[in-house]
Design a protein around this nucleic acid. Structure first.
Lengths: 209, 209
DNA sequence: TAGATTGTTAATCGATTAACAATC
DNA sequence: TAGATTGTTAATCGATTAACAATC
């Protein structure tokens, strides 16, 4: 797949398209147009075609796209045709909820290690997985060839934990801590800052009042 | 505050700046330049000045910004100088974790109602708040003048729940369900789609392998 | 005054959208 | 062939960045 520069928004939309196509498969639909996908997920049809065009030609002019086929391509493009092992650092409320989140499993993500440094938490089970001390990080990452780390620790230790994850071999990080993290450019970082999200809402509420 | 069109990215950065300023206050710093803020949060200094310029002139040429003063302005702009009452619909793992999330309280958000339709969950306590049936929605929203709704229900019922929230008076929605929601234009919607986030990581991993 | 840093304008960059030739 | 819809180009839009006059 020879690709130059894909806008991040495009990747996010591909993920959403793929879910919509999954729904169409369930409904037994077998052909769909860019306009229908667009209407289904609330974007323009040119946007849909443009997003797909980054990766190839998947449709038939005058006809549209075969739903199952396009779905298969998207899953491949998104890397969801393989299993990704995940480590969660921080077994607080949020980390524990994420460890048990069914949506991750559904899409091929397998949480195979959960770490915390609270002696009261270590040894407890979350589903199949036992909470272990941070010292186990290196071993678990190597053992399970983990590439994805989820950071749900307090802000003060988030950078340190991130550095350790990267040193141990993780190259993709989902950060839930309210901390601006620095990572080398070859590591992909995404921030899911819950407070920032609520504050955008708050901004809009304040604006309209 | 007379404002035309603020990029959403600007609002998110303002939230991040405000946290950085809070940290500077703790450190006893009392003056800061746009370059220092920029370095602190990993953006360009022109970006910082431009973001602030949407809302006014907060600095002194040749000197910089007074930390506490600028922090105060940002809190005001973000609407964090007032308390926002929040309702959570869906008391599963994620909803429960959010109900207890300290970060929300710290920024002035008060979760004052949690609803679920699972009889096994109703009546249980999450912190101070008791899980109630969905029938209580209208009453709680009116009683507490709730403007913010957090949706953590399964995709199948997300749109229905959202419609009910809006009818009852909620005008800002944080959606954690993997569902494209339709809301009237006067309602602010933010999607925090955990799977989409992981899939962007997966895409990048697949790209680099 | 000299040095520093803001606020703002203009240039650049990149993403979205409209339009249409290609083609089923 | 006529109608439909793709893939792609070019136009538009909007956000970021560079540059600099204003000014402390």
């Amino acid at each position: 797949m020879k690709v130059y520069k894909i806008p991040e928004a495009t990747v996010m939309r591909l993920s959403i398209y793929s879910r919509y196509l999954h729904q169409l498969i369930d409904e037994g639909v077998d052909t769909v147009s860019s306009g229908e996908i667009a209407a289904g997920v609330g974007v323009g049809s040119a946007q849909v075609r443009k997003d797909l065009a980054y990766f190839g030609e998947f449709g038939t002019r005058g006809v549209g796209y075969k739903v199952e086929e396009l779905y298969g391509y998207l899953i491949k493009i998104l890397g969801l045709d393989q299993q990704w092992n995940v480590i969660i650092v921080g077994a607080g409320k949020l980390g524990s909820a994420l460890a048990l989140y069914q949506g991750f499993k559904d899409r091929g993500f397998s949480v195979c290690a959960i770490l915390d440094n609270d002696p009261g938490r270590i040894g407890q089970k979350l589903g199949e997985t036992t909470i272990e001390p941070l010292e186990q990080m290196d071993q678990r990452i190597k053992e399970h060839n983990i590439k994805v780390g989820i950071v749900t620790v307090p802000a003060q230790v988030a950078q340190e934990v991130t550095d350790r994850l990267i040193t141990a071999g993780v190259t993709a990080i989902l950060n839930f801590s309210p901390k601006v993290l620095r990572v080398p450019h070859e590591v992909t970082l995404r921030n899911v800052d819950l407070s920032v999200n609520l504050e955008v809402l708050s901004f809009n509420l304040a604006l309209n009042s």
